[in-house]
Design a protein around this nucleic acid. Structure first.
Lengths: 330, 330
DNA sequence: GACTTCCATGCAACCGGTTGCATGTCAAGT
DNA sequence: ACTTGACATGCAACCGGTTGCATGGAAGTC
């Protein structure tokens, strides 16, 4: 049976070391204010008693808890783990802890989480928030906020510009001789989907290529797979999918229908989350989610330090990663 | 420019409502102690001022912060996100928040995180901890702890038994008439790899099946792919791979060599992290990480409520999920 | 009408730190 | 010898809530 030791307080250390509580506090926070001997005496006493400063009490009196929150819509979406990881790493460098929230793509849940976090974090990063602009603005009035992939004036934000990569994708297909392509779209309410579709249309019309949009609705493997018939019906020779998962579904659908990729059809994904684990290895647009996580936290910590809100708009360009699902049009 | 509103305190609400601070506190925590009219008056005042109880202050006086910590070795490993998600969901049901820590597989980092979390969470879940038994015991002395996939006497733990599922996999192959199979092994220092290999050998020898082991070293897509020649060289008709990623690599390797799955060869993965996103859909051993996350948190919350540590050892059996990569031996 | 009982509310201590200001000591300056 | 200043330390208020106990008034009992 394991016994739990109750907390040692600053007063006990003070008694043991024969000093005032304030001196113990200073020994830990501003040792330069005390004589070296006093500091070592206090430290020795603290060590002996197993004293650990109480984070909560400290947070109450200083107003700084050393935590920041990070809220994502779906942790199981492979786009986010690298982002979370990078955010955590960056926070760690400044001795901050990350509070993670998962909203299950549900704005209500997101609102609730923001509220619950508000009391215990100094600032918040909202990644791909599903909240309305108004709600986000309201929250930003309560505590320092940084957005990832939401573009709202006046609130610091990190944007992954998939447009640049998508443009490269279309140019790549054009160079390979494709004249008629399909965009397998994602959720219609998604900011990224809008961004990508717009970029494709712009690039295509500039290069004199015909684009048709086939909806995949749920941005998942299955909807990609189900979209295959519609894709083939357009008579296109290449497609760009909203994301890698959709592309992988399309790949499976083609395989079932004995359509060879890239032999009969060229396919490009987005987000590059599957790395090279599909067969054939998927040509895709890089996502830079790692940088996004790192930069967002770094921005937030800056805000906390300077107590100022700058209207930062940090754009990360993406690029095409060519692998084996694209080849010259027949 | 967005302005930040400073916090409204309980005293301001008390003044506005013409009551004592304690009454405001009670209005929020134990409204049954107050007359209904007083409660509504206080609530109205609170609403008008935009009062939100200060979580930190409350935690300081009650000793309960309503947070639990969850530490995982690698959030980017697809095994963990579902676990995290389930843990969060379960915590949410009891109005608890989850603190997430990522250790990058590094025991030092894990120790550091535990220490940092200790002050702000009521309890901790360690998933696949990389710490030594002694360190874990030491931490368990400081705060309520639940382990996932670590088997230490006296500390509540949730164990995923992949052996049971692997046994089913071998039985499944036997029933399909396979007499000679391959185990595509994972990292030799992995607890799971050992567990799985042992289970396969035991089941196979019981069923009079020949097993050969082909190493995939890094448990990754590429090493699975590279193992294909060796697999074919054994003359086996079926294989069980250490994990799904390896299996997917093997699948790709087969595809390159024009070996049809399941037509020419049957393949089974482990962990079921890819769901049905391969083509053909991968037969795999379930991992139950979702249940593990849920159960661990639920156990922890129980401990917090009852203030007692029971020596729970919760074993989750795994099962074979049959999809389309296995069929009768030719 | 006096006495008990009960309920709603207030008072004040407490949770465990931090911090502005006061105090005391000692050495240097004149 | 007296002032001055620097420095180390203590005192006490404060952060924003919670909670045991005291109090006072209304209702109930004989």
């Amino acid at each position: 049976m394991i016994k739990r030791t109750k907390g040692v307080t600053i007063s006990q250390v003070a008694d043991a070391a024969g000093v005032a509580r304030s001196s113990v506090s200073r020994a830990f926070t501003r040792p330069d204010m005390l004589s070296p001997e006093t500091v070592t005496r206090i430290m020795k006493a603290a060590e002996a008693l197993g004293y650990v400063p109480n984070h909560t009490a400290r947070a109450l009196s200083t107003g700084r808890h050393g935590n920041v929150g990070l809220i994502v819509p779906d942790i199981a979406n492979p786009f986010f783990p690298p982002l979370i990881q990078a955010a955590q790493l960056e926070a760690d460098r400044s001795d901050f802890c990350i509070f993670l929230g998962n909203t299950e793509e549900n704005p209500k849940q997101e609102d609730k989480l923001v509220g619950r976090f508000a009391g215990q974090v100094e600032g918040l990063v909202l990644a791909s928030s599903r909240l309305s602009d108004e709600r986000i603005r309201a929250h930003a009035g309560q505590l320092p906020l940084v957005l990832i992939n939401r573009d709202i004036d006046g609130i610091p934000r990190v944007l992954i510009d998939s447009g640049s990569g998508v443009r490269e994708a279309v140019e790549h297909l054009a160079k390979l001789g494709h004249r008629r392509i399909v965009y397998v779209s994602g959720p219609s309410n998604s900011w990224s989907n809008k961004q990508r579709r717009t970029a494709i249309k712009a690039a295509a019309s500039r290069l004199d290529i015909v684009v048709e949009t086939v909806p995949a609705v749920l941005a998942s493997y299955n909807s990609g797979r189900n979209a295959v018939s519609a894709i083939l019906a357009t008579g296109a020779t290449a497609a760009v999918a909203f994301d890698d998962l959709t592309a992988q579904g399309v790949l499976a659908g083609f395989s079932e229908k004995r359509v060879s990729v890239p032999g009969d059809f060229s396919l490009i994904g987005c987000d590059d989350v599957l790395g090279a684990v599909t067969y054939p290895a998927l040509t895709s647009v890089s996502n830079r989610s790692t940088e996004a996580g790192r930069v967002a936290v770094s921005l937030l910590l800056d805000m906390l330090q300077s107590r100022a809100i700058r209207d930062v708009r940090y754009v990360l360009e993406t690029h095409l990663v060519v692998r084996n699902t694209t080849t010259a049009a027949r």
